[in-house]
């Protein structure tokens, strides 16, 4: 076991981990942050996306030991300071960008990373950026709408409903 220390959602945390302990396991099991989900074994579904040092990564495909000393942000730390939904979260609710909710944390974290890189993405850019996030419920339509809306872009003009 080795000791790892990191800043998770603004709080310093530490724990003893095995070499094989994944960042996702550290977050879910040691830290009780179960909003980060595990939907596959091959680094494709994206339900486990968190930010490490500001970058989106798949926490099921990163060792906890590799995140030693890093700043980690998860879905649990995304809401505004007063507990209200942040802009992206609110847009997901307003535009029905989630159904069962299982892929949602990864979607929100990927969306946050996208909008940081590209504040006004086109619809095609949003879809391309979500290549590593699989949703089985929504058909992506409302996720794309939500992210466009969160970026301040006109949604009705986009959707042929």
């Amino acid at each position: 076991m080795t000791k790892v220390t990191m800043t998770v959602n603004g709080k310093a945390v530490s724990g003893d981990v095995e070499g094989r302990t994944l960042l996702s396991s550290f977050l879910r099991e040691d830290q009780g942050l179960t909003g980060t989900h595990i939907g596959c074994d091959t680094s494709q579904c994206g339900a486990c996306v968190v930010h490490v040092d500001g970058q989106a990564v798949k926490s099921c495909t990163m060792l906890a030991a590799e995140a030693d000393g890093a700043t980690v942000d998860t879905i649990e730390g995304q809401a505004n300071a007063d507990g209200s939904l942040n802009v992206i979260q609110q847009a997901f609710q307003d535009h029905h960008g989630l159904q069962c909710g299982f892929c949602t944390p990864g979607m929100v974290m990927s969306a946050a990373a996208l909008l940081k890189e590209n504040p006004k993405p086109s619809e095609a850019e949003v879809r391309e950026y979500l290549e590593g996030n699989i949703c089985r419920c929504t058909g992506y339509h409302n996720i794309v709408k939500a992210i466009m809306a969160a970026s301040g872009q006109d949604v009705p003009a986009l959707a042929a409903e």
Partner: peptide, 9 residues
């Protein structure tokens, strides 16, 4: 290659 999160690692 892969997707954005994969490309970050």
């Amino acid at each position: 290659i892969g997707d954005p999160a994969v490309r970050n690692r």
